[in-house]
Design a protein around this nucleic acid. Structure first.
Length: 541
DNA sequence: AGTGCAGTTGACTTT
DNA sequence: TAAAGTCAACTGCAC
């Protein structure tokens, strides 16, 4: 009997647990449902759709080569599933466990209700370290580690053709009712793009990842750029982890000998050290990715509600329209903020630290509610991943209650991350005549009068005064007695478990059972503090 | 050559 | 993945 594999944000064939499971039950009908309701959301955009459509075209070709092309249908999920199941006598439905936004969560509940009523078995399988119906965060990291270390699943060699099914067409953004969203620097979708990025990152681009990721200038090349592929599933997290582990096992780089970088340019040892640090850092960030997605899995409401209820009324729910518009357009008059926003608008990507800064400036300096600003950023990100996005929006706005406040100074960030001003000048050409020493604070330039308010806006807020005011508000709130106990509740539910070194406590679980070293050297005693059952809550994450 | 001092650096604390 | 403030140790330099 035919099973139906419902593709969602898992647009690949390799390392696909749901596809592998479906294949064990005979012929498989591979389906993708284009859902206009989802694409009408305030957090979705044409650029995301076009990237998705490229991934779908690629998947369609790959499946076609295996014997059964991808079936694409546009409409409401329950109606489409009902129709296909009825017409083809399908009783079994497979998909991955999607940790999506509130829209897909509600849709999945409708699908679940329909499947139960119709007597259809719907099996959802995890595709990452995120755990459904997690009872406690204790032990989570070890559990995730087991999943990502279990080995990648091979893709199918062939699919049995199912006669008489129209493959269907992949619609355009316009057909989904989305105005085109100009994004000239957008990344290319599809499996081969993902594999090329993985390869080039692990053999060439990633050497300075650890040091270079903080700046939008160096981060563009040195970051993996895999994020949209992980978000749409053209590459699985486990495949990425697997590849990084392999690279680390080879002592840092896969580019042994053949690297374009001339030998002797830098000492070999220094290169190896940089690779080790970068790969370790990248692997750890892949773990943080699952950690943040787990928060949304556990509490889908973090898309709309402040994690710490006391922060709920902090900022006006109705945002200051002028400030919001200036921030969105990259016209705040704060050069580095505007440069980052314009770059993001143009490319659909921005390095992590600058994303944090954009959010922090909106939430603290401009005092805008994250629910007004979050959707704008979501739409600009080709790699929009709800679990990471909403967790981060709240974290950079101080509404989780469990993280230390990170009020970025956009002038300082500009000076440090764009020291020669090249990036700022490229994206804010209005500042061409401003000398280097005033680039990040043109309002201090004695000749600023002929520029500000005409060619380029005067700063929409006084950067220093606005930060001070925000800090005072936030700390006043935290002084309240009830704040801490409520924060502790949030931490129990959502915080990572860390030891004193700041590592996931449970990452070490495997080591505790390992037999003692036989080389006679006494191993340093594991501190009892680092035991999982005595875990400290990782209040910084 | 030792002393005083302004300025710098880094670790640590506070907001 | 913060920033600013504090303080002690340190540095360079004039005398």
């Amino acid at each position: 009997m035919t099973s139906l594999l419902w593709f969602k944000r898992d647009l690949r064939l390799a390392d696909h647990p749901a596809l592998a499971a479906a294949m064990q039950h005979g012929p498989v009908l591979p389906l993708y449902i284009v859902e206009p309701g989802y694409w009408r959301g305030t957090d979705t955009s044409a650029r995301q759709w076009v990237f998705t459509a490229e991934c779908l075209a690629d998947l369609q070709a790959a499946l076609g080569a295996l014997g059964q092309p991808l079936v694409v249908r546009t409409g409401e999920a329950v109606a489409i599933l009902r129709e296909l199941c009825a017409r083809h006598g399908i009783r079994r439905l497979f998909s991955h466990e999607e940790t999506g936004n509130l829209w897909t969560y509600a849709r999945d509940r409708r699908v679940g209700a329909w499947a139960r009523a119709a007597g259809i078995e719907w099996r959802e399988l995890p595709q990452s370290g995120v755990v459904r119906r997690l009872q406690s965060r204790d032990g989570w990291a070890a559990r995730r580690e087991r999943f990502v270390s279990a080995g990648v699943l091979p893709g199918p060699a062939a699919l049995a053709p199912l006669p008489g099914i129209e493959p269907g067409r992949i619609p355009t953004a316009a057909e989904l009712g989305r105005v085109p969203d100009v994004c000239p620097g957008r990344q290319q979708g599809g499996r081969s793009a993902a594999l090329e990025l993985l390869e080039s990152f692990l053999t060439e681009r990633g050497e300075d990842y650890r040091a270079a990721m903080a700046s939008p200038v160096t981060g563009e090349q040195a970051c993996s750029r895999l994020s949209p592929h992980l978000a749409l599933g053209t590459l699985s997290v486990r495949e990425a982890v697997d590849a990084v582990k392999a690279a680390r096992a080879q002592g840092g780089t896969l580019a042994q000998g053949g690297g374009a970088r001339a030998a002797g340019d830098r000492a070999e040892a220094a290169i190896a050290r940089a690779w080790r640090a970068s790969l370790k850092s990248f692997e750890s960030r892949l773990a943080w990715r699952d950690h943040f997605m787990q928060k949304l899995e556990d509490e889908p409401a973090i898309e709309t509600r402040c994690l710490h209820p006391a922060t709920e009324g902090l900022r006006p729910r109705e945002p200051d329209a002028a400030r919001l518009a200036a921030w969105q357009r990259g016209e705040t008059g704060i050069p580095f903020v505007d440069a980052c926003m314009r770059y993001l608008t143009h490319t659909g990507w921005l390095n992590f630290r600058m994303r944090s800064m954009l959010m922090a400036v909106a939430s603290y300096h401009l005092w805008l509610d994250w629910r007004a600003t979050g959707p704008h950023l979501a739409r600009l990100f080709t790699d929009y991943e709800p679990g990471i996005h909403w967790s981060q929006c709240q974290m950079q706005s101080g509404t989780t209650g469990i993280n230390t406040l990170r009020i970025y100074n956009p002038v300082k960030q500009g000076l440090e991350q764009d020291p020669d001003g090249q990036f700022t000048r490229r994206w804010v050409p209005e500042l061409a005549e401003v000398p280097d020493s005033f680039l990040q604070q043109p309002w201090l330039w004695p000749a600023a009068g002929r520029l500000l308010g005409t060619t380029y806006p005067a700063p929409i807020v006084d950067v220093a005064a606005a930060a001070r005011a925000a800090r005072e508000q936030m700390w006043a709130l935290r002084k309240d007695g009830a704040f801490a106990s409520e924060a502790a509740r949030v931490a129990r539910r959502h915080a990572s478990r860390k030891d004193r070194q700041g590592h996931f406590v449970n990452d070490r679980e495997g080591q505790t059972s390992r037999p003692a070293a036989t080389d006679g050297k006494p191993k340093r005693q594991r501190s009892p503090r680092s035991r999982a059952n005595d875990a400290q809550l990782g209040l910084d994450f």
